[in-house]
Nucleic acid binder design. Structure first.
Length: 282
DNA sequence: CTTTTTCCCTGGACGC
DNA sequence: TGCGTCCAGGGAAAAA
């Protein structure tokens, strides 16, 4: 499941492969990828362009093209890029292939076909991202105060607020659980019940969880691989995600699995408080 | 405005 | 061995 750390790892892997290269041929093999745009139109807009830079915003990969257009790729559940290594010509899950001007191919693979390729004109990129994404977690604009503002008045579970990309960009189900564990906050707590100290802890928890993931080149559970085919190692460092029945690494209490907002949710029922001191006194 | 639900997609795990 | 059911979950869209 590519979240910010996985997408950042992919960005780092693709940068040396694509920087300054011209896209000589673009073949989109699955029409779903560009929906509602016809694949031929996207192929035409990409073909012949050079890749100026490879950027990331939240979970989006952004390929800046010499035409001024941007290709926005969202990997959703199982999207990945492959470059070099094994022959993918017989792989049924390759959904697009791009031939570079050095003769090599970059393949886009996606088992479940949730991923999207979208071409956006230069001027429209800012608006497109601004309406969907809040601050980057490591930018100065993501602060305890901005997080507090996102949580204020929200009766939804704090985990749901974290998964809302307008709160902070790039968190998915895994890093939401990991951040809440680090902050010692129970995922089902209503956003508005967090006090200032808890918000501060959560702000730090978000950054620490994402930083750990980036440092370990992401988490490989089922499908995720970097462009060279390598796995990440973050899955070995999970504190709570997927660990129901195992002891909490902090207090040894058995980790519990529940369901919040339709998502599998793992937490420690002992050291992640279901209410804060204020609530208990009332 | 917020919150909840449904949908999209496929492979793997599991029960019988 | 085979078949049905559930689960994984990001985000768009519709419903409440």
């Amino acid at each position: 499941v590519p979240e910010l750390p996985e997408v950042e790892t992919i960005r780092l892997g693709l940068t040396p492969v694509l920087m300054g290269k011209r896209l000589d041929e673009v073949r989109i093999l699955d029409a779903r990828l560009t929906r509602p745009e016809p694949p031929e139109e996207v192929e035409a807009r990409l073909t012949g362009q050079r890749v100026e830079t490879v950027l990331r915003r939240g979970k989006y990969l952004i390929f800046e093209l010499s035409s001024g257009d941007h290709l926005l790729v969202h990997l959703r559940m199982t999207g990945s890029f492959r470059y070099g290594g094994t022959d993918l010509s017989a792989d049924p899950y390759v959904r697009a292939v791009v031939r570079l001007d050095d003769g090599s191919d970059v393949a886009y693979r996606d088992v479940r076909r949730f991923g999207t390729w979208l071409v956006i004109e230069g001027d429209d990129l800012g608006d497109y991202l601004a309406t969907r994404l809040g601050p980057e977690p490591f930018a100065a604009t993501f602060t305890a105060a901005s997080l507090a503002a996102s949580l204020a008045g929200r009766r939804a579970p704090v985990k749901a607020v974290l998964l809302d990309q307008r709160t902070v960009a790039g968190i998915g189900n895994i890093y939401a659980d990991e951040a809440l564990w680090r902050a010692r906050v129970a995922p089902e707590r209503a956003g508005l019940t967090l006090d200032a100290a808890e918000v501060k802890a959560l702000h730090r928890g978000v950054r620490a969880a994402l930083r750990a993931g980036i440092d370990r080149q992401g988490a490989t559970l089922r499908d995720y691989r970097d462009p060279s085919g390598a796995s990440g190692t973050m899955q070995d460092e999970f504190r709570v995600y997927g660990r129901d029945g195992a002891p909490c690494p902090r207090c040894r209490t058995t980790i519990t699995k529940t369901r919040i907002g339709g998502r599998g949710t793992w937490f420690c029922p002992a050291c992640q408080r279901a209410d804060n001191a204020l609530g208990r006194r009332r």
